[in-house]
């Protein structure tokens, strides 16, 4: 009885959570104006792709989509590389000032990103990177949370594995590539999701540093769409779907590892 109740409750919550998504998808396939009639319709009377046509043909959202994809993938790959190298070094290497440096890095996590925006902007401006993709990539090269996450995971890798590889004749970089990286897969997947999501969804920073329409990322382009076409909910929903879709795909693809990453450490193997 209790079980049925719990399942019922979960079912209701799931419906409430999923409904906006369902409506977003549904509305994006409706004709102009059909989404805002009374009584509301949940399923399009007539299935149409006009909204998408408008998006891709008139509003050049394709280039925004690829801008976002390019930046998100690039930032994810680069930051995973640097974070994993740094995290591994902090976990397994001995060098003077290691603990102090790590503590300084950690304590800088409490500084809100809004505070650093202006100085960062000025710095990038003096380097001449404003209105280039470098302005997005450079601040995303590495992040402290990522380094911390990887360091914690690396600490659980026994030293003897690294020593065994060293005796077997592996050099430091080979050990990193062949032993450490494969063992880090779950945490790298988790971090990849975080980074990809973060970069893909980021709105404020691209808005600040990119001034050229053609360089806009999807969230920025979408917000412009909202301003110009606030009376076209169908068009907006189509734009939103395009924006969320890659995120969902990335999450589903890495979900297996992501959950493993969260579970990790709870059971000693």
């Amino acid at each position: 009885m209790k079980k049925i109740f719990i399942h019922l409750l979960l079912f209701v919550i799931a419906i409430l959570t999923l409904f906006p998504f369902f409506w977003m998808i549904s509305a994006s396939f409706m004709q102009d104006g059909h989404a805002s009639v009374f009584p509301p319709r949940f399923i399009p009377d007539e299935f149409t792709l006009t909204q998408y046509q408008k998006l891709f043909e008139r509003l050049s959202i394709t280039s925004n989509f690829f801008n976002s994809l390019f930046l998100s993938v690039l930032v994810t790959v680069i930051s995973l590389t640097f974070n994993s190298l740094a995290g591994y070094a902090f976990a397994k290497y001995k060098f003077s000032g290691k603990e102090k440096l790590f503590n300084v890095l950690l304590s800088s996590m409490i500084i809100p990103s809004q505070v650093t925006m202006l100085p960062l902007f000025l710095m990038l401006k003096s380097m001449g990177f404003i209105n280039t993709y470098m302005a997005i990539i450079i601040p995303g090269l590495a992040n402290i949370f990522g380094i911390f996450l990887i360091r914690q995971f690396c600490l659980s890798i026994p030293n003897s594995l690294i020593e065994a590889a060293r005796i077997d004749g592996a050099n430091d970089f080979y050990i990193y590539i062949k032993i450490i990286l494969p063992l880090l897969t779950p945490v790298l997947a988790t971090l990849a999701i975080f980074t990809f999501l973060g970069t893909w969804n980021d709105f404020l920073w691209p808005l600040i540093v990119l001034t050229d329409d053609s360089m806009y990322t999807l969230p920025v382009a979408l917000s412009n769409l909202m301003l110009e076409h606030s009376k076209d909910p169908e068009l907006m929903m189509a734009g939103s779907l395009i924006t969320v879709l890659p995120v969902i795909i990335v999450f589903l693809a890495l979900q297996k590892y992501y959950i493993k990453g969260i579970m990790m450490g709870s059971v000693k193997e």
Binding site: P158, S160, L161, E163, A164, R166, I167, D168, G169, A170
Partner: peptide, 15 residues
Amino acid sequence: SPKDRDIAMVFQNYA
């Protein structure tokens, strides 16, 4: 370095 000493080691936790 360990690799140039031509030794092999068996660890307690197998590694």
